[in-house]
């Protein structure tokens, strides 16, 4: 569609056109609203949102927190534009039982459309590239971990997790991990699909029926872990949770020795 009826009729450079748009009072007022909204989302994304999330106990979880903050910041201006302009029009609504007079008849504005596409593509590109970089560094870390990793075989069964430490010859219903040692989880399900989710470690993968999946991470903070199932797995899905601990290497060795008898008390 042509832009004969464009918002701005002059044909100077796009830069001048843009400047002309911003000279309009209504654009500036709407933009002010937008800035306010952007600021609010900045605060939510940067501080309020992360405060809801549990303590990060691995670099994976740390990077997820960072990523969520950055994504919120990227989207804050988008929220600002959309909400700023809609708040402005809402405040200038027409009241009454009869329809308002016809508004201006412009049908498009190629400058605005073009700018919109470019900016949204750019923001999208930032998100994509950032995500790919994070993924890449995660898989580089995986390669690093492989050398020195402690293997934990995770078995999901309806409706409990069990853990086998082949290196130590220990089995447990709790996930005990030494700090700062890479750990490689080999996950399998003996019945339906589950999803292995040690919440504070920021990793997750499905436990598929009789098919092994692998994830790795390095716990770097002492504390309790919640291990949950994130895939509906039947009657007691809600109760398919267990606890875990990240402990010092010494504590871990003590725990291993105490449980090598074949049972956990």
């Amino acid at each position: 569609m042509s832009d004969d009826h464009g918002l701005v009729e002059m044909e100077p450079t796009p830069g001048e056109k843009l400047a002309a748009i911003f000279k309009q009072r209504e654009v500036r007022v709407a933009t002010a609203w937008g800035v306010l909204v952007t600021a609010i989302f900045f605060v939510i994304g940067g501080w309020i949102y992360p405060s809801w999330m549990p303590t990060a106990m691995s670099t994976d979880m740390k990077s997820i927190e960072r990523l969520i903050v950055i994504f919120t910041w990227i989207s804050a201006p988008v929220c600002g534009i959309v909400l700023g302009f809609s708040i402005y029009t809402f405040l200038h609504r027409h009241k009454g039982d009869t329809p308002p007079a016809d508004g201006p008849g412009f049908r498009t504005n190629s400058l605005v459309v073009g700018l919109w596409v470019i900016v949204s593509s750019a923001l999208c590109l930032v998100a994509v590239v950032y995500g790919l970089i994070e993924m890449n560094s995660a898989s580089a870390a995986t390669a690093e971990h492989k050398k020195n990793a402690m293997v934990v075989e995770v078995t999901g069964s309806q409706w409990a997790w069990s853990f086998n430490y082949p290196e130590q010859g220990v089995q447990s219903h709790e996930l005990m991990l030494p700090i700062n040692r890479p750990v490689e989880f080999k996950i399998i399900s003996v019945d339906v699909n589950h999803s292995f989710w040690p919440v504070q470690l920021g990793v997750k993968v499905d436990a598929n029926r009789l098919q092994t999946t692998v994830i790795d991470t390095t716990p770097n903070k002492l504390g309790d872990i919640d291990v949950k199932c994130a895939e509906l797995c039947g009657l007691y899905h809600a109760y398919m949770e267990t606890s875990g601990k990240v402990m010092s290497a010494d504590d871990f060795n003590t725990w291993v020795t105490a449980h090598q008898g074949g049972h956990t008390a």
Binding site: M53, D60, M61, S63, I64, L67, I68, F71, T72, S75, V78, C79, A127, G131, E134, M135, A138, S195, W197, V199, G202, V203, K204, A230, E231
Partner: peptide, 19 residues
């Protein structure tokens, strides 16, 4: 839409998937 952006991102989905 914006919350969908987090979910579309693989690392963030490590935390958010199934929640």
């Amino acid at each position: 839409g914006i919350t969908g952006l987090y979910l579309s991102d693989v690392p963030a989905d490590n935390y958010l998937h199934g929640s």
